[in-house]
Design a binder for these strands. Structure first.
Lengths: 155, 155
DNA sequence: CAGGCTCATTAGCCTTGCTAAGGATATGCT
DNA sequence: AGCATATCCTTAGCAAGGCTAATGAGCCTG
């Protein structure tokens, strides 16, 4: 087996074009990119879970905790906690659900809306810098890949 | 502001081609894809952190905890714990470092090698099925995007 | 050979996932 | 109507996996 391997890991293999091989390389690239993006957040930032819910509320409007849990692929108690942390910070608020008093409608506060926009800008800054170093043709490939990914992993 | 919004969220906007706009849409697509992939793991599977280290050891050969921590963008104590869990499961083992007895070399066991290959196959299966439904041209776009992402987020 | 540095580990905290269980409200059946 | 069941959110308690601070072993420099 490999004893002490070379200092620099081997060059990347070419990306296969068939579904199985492509899946392996694409998955790795997606995971690593996401990890890298995640690492760019500052310490006093919102957590991932918090920001994700905030962004969802911003994009889709008021939602019940159950809907949020389903959208985030999380169990309801986890969402209860995330929502509670947002409410504590004054970024969201719970309100009555019209017509079903078991349910609750979570909505952004004005502060929440501001925060989501600021955070988004900040988180995108690093990636935007990297993309600025690419050629227009390369950005075109990424833009088209984005569209394909949206469909492939559509909820 | 938006009161009870439409049931179906609005159609996705077109993906901008400039760095800033592209960054926003690309980041979202990456995050969501990764979340979706992550959700595909079965319950008795390795955790993300565990699998990631196992895969790294498989790809790059024996490494010290410190090197692993750096590669995973994690603090050393976190890696100590992850490595410990892999050792407990019999998937990795600690061995002496030649020439520096403070350090430790973590390496895969044969069981670890088998596990990483199986897990990889299983995790890729879902994505491969989705990709099989695309046209060759679309897969070509994803393959080229993979190559670009590798460079963009390179460690 | 003494002091300081590096590496791994331990201890202890926090967040965020989970399941199980509980309370309030809605719904459906008789 | 009245009671059983279902649905929805929440509470309680556990586990995983981040983090920092502190510890101990081994290396190295002056």
């Amino acid at each position: 087996m490999s004893e002490r391997p070379p200092e620099r890991p081997p060059e990347y293999p070419p990306v296969p074009r068939g579904p199985a091989g492509l899946a392996a390389e694409l998955r790795t690239a997606l995971m690593r990119s996401t990890r890298r993006l995640r690492a760019m957040k500052s310490d006093d930032d919102l957590s991932d879970a918090q920001f994700s819910v905030l962004a969802l509320l911003d994009r889709c409007g008021p939602r019940t905790p159950g809907e949020l849990a389903e959208a985030e692929h999380v169990q309801p108690p986890s969402m209860t906690r995330t929502v509670a942390s947002l409410v504590e910070r004054g970024l969201a608020e719970r309100g009555d659900h019209p017509g079903d008093r078991r349910q609750v409608l979570v909505r952004l506060t004005p502060a929440g809306r501001t925060t989501v926009e600021e955070t988004r800008r900040r988180r995108d800054a690093w990636l935007a810098r990297q993309l600025a170093g690419l050629t227009p043709a390369e950005r075109e490939v990424l833009a088209r890949a984005t569209e394909i990914l949206r469909r492939v992993v559509a909820p």
